[in-house]
Write a protein that binds this DNA or RNA. Structure first.
Lengths: 203, 203, 203, 203
DNA sequence: TATGAATGAGAATTCATTCAT
DNA sequence: CATGAATGAATTCTCATTCAT
């Protein structure tokens, strides 16, 4: 039997994923600059040259990881938020799901948190659109709450979204870097969303 | 006239500072890995080799910047907090002073925020002690407030300090990277400390 | 209907020629070293691997071009010279036909002139027999003329053949490289053969 | 005694020359593309990296060789021609000096003849000015001869300069490549200039 | 035969660090 | 102390060639 086009494409996609995943592990462990292409190739069990059949260059691998993984994170978060109607519940959900995702994908978190920050410096042209979309999920909830009269009108969504994300991010960064976890996800998520909700809820 | 020991030491210290400051600018602009020793030397107006009379290697320059700058930040913050006695005011002060310092020293902020995060990866041995001391200024205030019965007892200072710092940090990261500022320091500091205080204050 | 042996061979030859011609264009445009096998394959509309069914390696393609094209050039020149009996006319014919062929096959000329010269360096074993045969067409005419008492006896055919060919070659190289042509083929051929004839003719 | 600026510059120039000469030998032997930077470095007895203190890249080395060597050739030829007043003698001198220089500097000749030809292909921007100046020495002599009524007026200097140079060049190429020399310089120069002079002289 | 994905050896270039002056 | 020319290890990326399909 001759191989169908579909099989071939599956095989291609499979190798692409193997490289993406290998790179994710290596970038997370060593950092972008210390990571060597040959190391990623070895981890992905392909030849060095093969990587260049799927990516233009080293930068392109990092960008692709961002795109792929952020899309997954974005889709997942949207799905989870859809189930809630109450803005208060949505904020709580965001915090919990965010920390849960981080916990389950430490390598991805590491890259998004650490490498993302310097990416803007060496990839001038790269606009991290997906990240902004993710942040805007928060400000959308806040605006929704304000319209429903649940959240105070003087809250600035543009500041609050960053403050809330920053709080969660710093928390998870601590986990990612320290590898030991003093507090469980649920407790941390509860506390952090709690501060914000108390700060934002109309009284 | 022969140079006195003091003069010599002053001159030494002066050149050391010139290198530190040049490196701060270059690291902030290019990032640690993209920054070249020769570029730092040019910026500091010394020879490449001279840098190695004051620092062991490139890593050492980055660590020294952390140590020097974080010490200044730490001293300054402590000084400002000393003037306040009320934990609530102290939290507000922390937020305002932090954002003000960031605003006045963007290069330093850039390095501490961006390069710091990956430093732990390539400088295994480096324990960022000063940073932890800085974070603990926050948890100390929280504990103080809890002892005075002002803050809720169920607040976990270890989480809260990170959440609060993270909120401020993400806010300032946005400024540092975006170079345009939608909200002024005072407004942002007020809002952020506000969320937390409302969340923490006993009602 | 099963394909006959002949048909199969024709098809083979057809693909071989397609590759030869594609390579001629690419080598002429990029030069041997800058030319990529994949580019030749694309130009010939075959797969990369297919090329290796017809040629041993990249060098082999270049050599084959020489052989094929030089044979054509050689056959054509011999045919044209056959029509003339007078050595003087033959020299004039050689100049004219040579420049005409160059003009009609710029890519081939480019390769023979430019790549040929360095070929001897990277293909030690390759003796450019066909080229020597071509040069010897000139010395044969000279010797013939000397025997007939038309050309001076003190002319050294070994030098003269190179001088004459070099003059034509430099002229055409100028055309090939410059892409603009100040003088038409006939004028140039006339002038060049003229110098030589005047220099060689017994007076 | 402290080293003077002059000494330092002499040392620098000395190393530059060492690299130029090493590269000349290697390029001549292997050709530009087959020549490796590391091989040139070894031949020049410097580290690989040192080459990049004196040249921007591999292309730059080749261009520098052209510039340096062609200037020498040009100066030398001008000097020799200055001693002659008669255009006929000048043509003879040009042929003799050209072949003598080639004979004494085979490596340089090799590079100018072989690598020069393909240079235009991989160094699009490089205009070989010096070479054109060299060619124009010939056409200047021809024009001078025509003004003095010695050479025929219907000679086109633009064609003749190329024909004459091409004749000499092909002759010397033969020597350079074959490494065996059937005819001595003087004989060859005499014959070649003879053809042209007979062809050009007014009768 | 034909394909084209995969291979991996190879090379140019960079740059932190050294050390003779 | 200061210099900056020299070093050479290290790394990304290319591309001729192979071979399973």
């Amino acid at each position: 039997m001759k191989h169908t086009n579909k099989n071939v494409q599956l095989r291609k996609k499979e190798k692409y994923n193997r490289i993406i995943n290998a790179a994710t592990r290596i970038f997370a462990k060593k950092g972008f600059f210390k990571a060597k292409i040959s190391e990623i190739a070895r981890e992905a069990d392909v030849a060095d040259g093969t990587i260049y059949l799927y990516f233009n260059n080293k930068d392109d691998i990092l960008i692709s990881i961002f795109e792929e993984k952020m899309q997954t994170v974005l889709d997942n978060m949207k799905e989870c938020l859809k189930k809630e109607t109450n803005p208060v519940k949505k904020i709580e959900t965001f915090a919990r799901v965010h920390l849960e995702m981080i916990e389950k994908n430490k390598d991805v978190a590491e890259i998004i948190q650490v490498e993302l920050r310097q990416s803007s410096k060496f990839m001038k042209e790269y606009e991290n659109l997906k990240f902004h979309q993710y942040l805007n999920l928060i400000s959308d909830i806040i605006k929704e709450g304000q319209e429903q009269g649940i959240f105070r009108k003087d809250i600035l969504p543009g500041i609050a979204k960053r403050a809330f994300f920053g709080a969660l991010d710093e928390m998870s960064r601590f986990w990612v870097l320290s590898k030991k976890k003093k507090y469980d996800t649920t407790t941390a998520a509860k506390q952090i969303s709690d501060y914000f909700l108390r700060g934002m809820i109309n009284t």
